[in-house]
């Protein structure tokens, strides 16, 4: 918000040529690589499907109407539920991790580094690694069988649980880092002040630490929720393509089903979900003292 306002301040000045020339490269980039493709996608989502793929220049709302079909509604609902679930899990796991990082003293940088290291490997490779962990002859089952805790291998892979685990594992760093940033900024004397004023540990957390880390929580949730919403690899590989997320739908429409307009429409449905999440975040950030990221 603040950035946008200051850009306008630059270009509204009398010497507007100088202003425009400063923002022109950015504007050009955004128009060519963002706005135009997006407009093309949006346009084609209102067009009819071509017989052999591509689009036919005829206006129709059928692709959006099609989402009222229980089949697609259930995909939509599942996508939302899994994405929200993954975000919640990431928060539950990530918050204590972020707290530990923020209070790790001289080990702080090493630990932050360790959180980032998995991101050096492609998400695809990491998802395959999850398969090796969870399959019948995988590490987890082998260990449990060897120790005699179970007699038959557990069915881990190709379950909703596996998809959830994959999403949480994949996006956890995006939850941890923003929360870590906001906890690291927290002035420890605030906690001392609360303690002298009679606040026990639980009160110190809920009255001081939690509210002041909300910008980080919001940013982390956003950074987890958005990629989870659009993910298709995880449900494909770990879920065994048994239960689709909307990302899989989009992928299918553009590839095997060759229904580009419907794929585009599905993309915009995802995007509207993202838009809602971002709006909520911005609203929260503007209300929060000290701002977010």
């Amino acid at each position: 918000m603040r950035v946008r306002r200051s850009i306008f301040r630059v270009i509204n000045r009398r010497e507007s040529w100088a202003g425009w020339s400063q923002v022109a490269p950015t504007l050009l980039f955004l128009v060519v690589f963002f706005i135009v493709p997006l407009a093309m996608m949006f346009g084609s989502s209102w067009m009819a499907r071509g017989t052999y793929g591509g689009i036919e220049w005829r206006f129709t709302a059928e692709h959006y109407v099609r989402f009222a079909d229980p089949l697609y509604l259930s995909i939509l609902a599942r996508t939302l539920a899994w994405s929200l679930g993954a975000t919640l899990f990431c928060l539950l796991v990530g918050y204590p991790v972020a707290w530990t990082l923020a209070n790790a003293g001289r080990w702080k940088n090493v630990l932050v580094f360790l959180v980032i290291v998995p991101l050096w490997t492609s998400y695809l490779v990491r998802t395959f690694a999850m398969i090796f962990l969870m399959r019948d002859s995988g590490l987890i089952n082998t260990l449990l069988l060897k120790t005699g805790l179970i007699q038959e291998p557990l069915e881990l892979l190709y379950t909703p649980g596996a998809v959830m685990a994959g999403l949480v594992y994949g996006f956890l760093p995006f939850m941890v880092l923003p929360i870590y940033t906001s906890l690291e900024k927290l002035d420890p004397t605030l906690l001392e002040a609360a303690e002298v004023l009679g606040a026990r540990p639980a009160a110190r957390f809920w009255k001081v630490i939690w509210p002041l880390s909300l910008p980080g929580v919001a940013a982390g949730s956003l950074l987890t929720f958005i990629p989870a919403l659009g993910s298709y690899l995880t449900s494909d590989l770990l879920g065994g393509a048994k239960q689709m997320m909307i990302g899989n739908l989009v992928q299918n429409q553009f590839t095997t089903a060759r229904n580009w307009p419907f794929g585009a429409a599905a993309s915009f449905v995802v995007m509207s979900g993202v838009l809602v999440a971002v709006t909520l975040y911005l609203r929260m950030r503007d209300k929060a003292p000290g701002g977010g990221l």
Binding site: T189, V196, K207, A288
Partner: peptide, 13 residues
């Protein structure tokens, strides 16, 4: 006890 800190330590939120 009551305590006043050098940085005041007021809760910003």
């Amino acid at each position: 006890l009551g305590m006043v800190f050098q940085s005041y330590a007021l809760f910003p939120h």
